[in-house]
């Protein structure tokens, strides 16, 4: 009896296991296997094809002494912080306004969210045209009589990254708003009654009671925005192609250019490994926290 049970256990759920093969393959080969491969080959001096000549940390030394990489990292920080701050503030404020039992709520929500359906390519090209220094919005203001008015976002080395922030915010704030609105709707209405009985003004209730209660929503929103920030690529390509000069380069573009454009695979892989490590540094504490919260709940 015992001997016949063992193979049985393996064969149990056979169709489920067969059906899960694509998932297992994706998880193991693509997500784990390919990541490990990239990390390993980032220690080689591979040029256009992967080669096993290991050179230690050479690629990383070169990476961090490269102006373009340093600029890219700075840019993604500026882009990330501006995007996080503004999309959270604006998204939350819009959600609060929409939560005031107003008319036309659906219309407003539809308007704020529609750019999210558009690709970064489309978003980038529209804003490239809007911010065009000669013919864009700047020209309209000049025609109004402010003859020296200029929007130098796209043509300046200092501010080009902010042009990308503007376009990114236009595209993504709607998503933040929807998530926040869902969070607000999940708040117990009794909270509002209680705070009214206590005579607490609405803004105080929002700031000191509702926002802390929405912590999980804020955290997930944060993670979603952050994982988008790391990947930002199409938007830059559409708007500025990294220029003027290298002033709006981002890490994702660095990786792509070195892997496919400049045939310097080792360098591209080293850069991508740095990106991966950054994500892991953020992700591991977060998933640990989530996991712990869930355990506490089930206890």
């Amino acid at each position: 009896m015992n001997t016949s049970k063992r193979p049985n256990l393996w064969l149990r759920n056979m169709s489920a296991k067969v059906a899960a093969v694509p998932m297992i393959a994706t998880a193991l080969i693509v997500f784990v296997g390919c990541s490990v491969w990239s990390v390993v080959y980032s220690f080689t001096s591979s040029r256009s094809l992967p080669k096993e000549n290991f050179v230690g940390l050479k690629q990383y030394e070169r990476l961090f002494s490269s102006n373009r990489w340093v600029e890219s990292v700075e840019n993604v920080f500026i882009f990330g912080i501006c995007t996080l701050v503004f999309s959270l503030i604006v998204g939350f404020s819009l959600a609060v306004l929409l939560d005031q039992k107003i008319r036309f709520e659906n219309t407003f929500r539809t308007i704020f969210l529609y750019p999210f359906a558009l690709s970064f390519m489309v978003t980038g090209l529209v804003w490239q045209w809007m911010l065009n220094p000669q013919l864009g919005v700047a020209s309209v203001v000049r025609n109004l009589g402010f003859e020296n008015f200029e929007i130098l976002l796209l043509s300046s080395r200092e501010y080009s990254i902010y042009a990308i922030v503007i376009a990114g915010l236009w595209q993504g704030t709607g998503l933040v708003m929807v998530l926040m609105l869902a969070g607000l709707r999940g708040i117990d209405q009794d909270i509002w009654k209680a705070s009214r009985v206590d005579g607490i003004p609405a803004w105080k209730t929002y700031l000191f009671i509702v926002v802390p209660m929405m912590r999980p929503v804020f955290v997930t929103t944060l993670v979603i925005i952050a994982s988008g920030i790391v990947k930002v690529y199409d938007l830059v390509l559409a708007m500025t192609q990294g220029g003027p000069g290298i002033s709006s380069e981002v890490p994702a573009k660095y990786v792509y250019d070195y892997m496919f454009g400049r045939a310097n695979l080792g360098q591209g892989l080293a850069a991508s490994t740095v990106m991966l490590s950054t994500v892991l540094i953020v992700l591991i504490p977060w998933s640990y926290m989530e996991f712990r919260d869930k355990q506490e709940k089930s206890v």
């Binding site: 390919c34 792509y256 695979l265 994500v279």
Partner: peptide
């Protein structure tokens, strides 16, 4: 977790 990995890490091996 794979959903959070930056694509750039796995594009070349793929």
């Amino acid at each position: 977790l794979g959903a959070f990995i930056p694509y750039q890490v796995i594009i070349y091996p793929l």
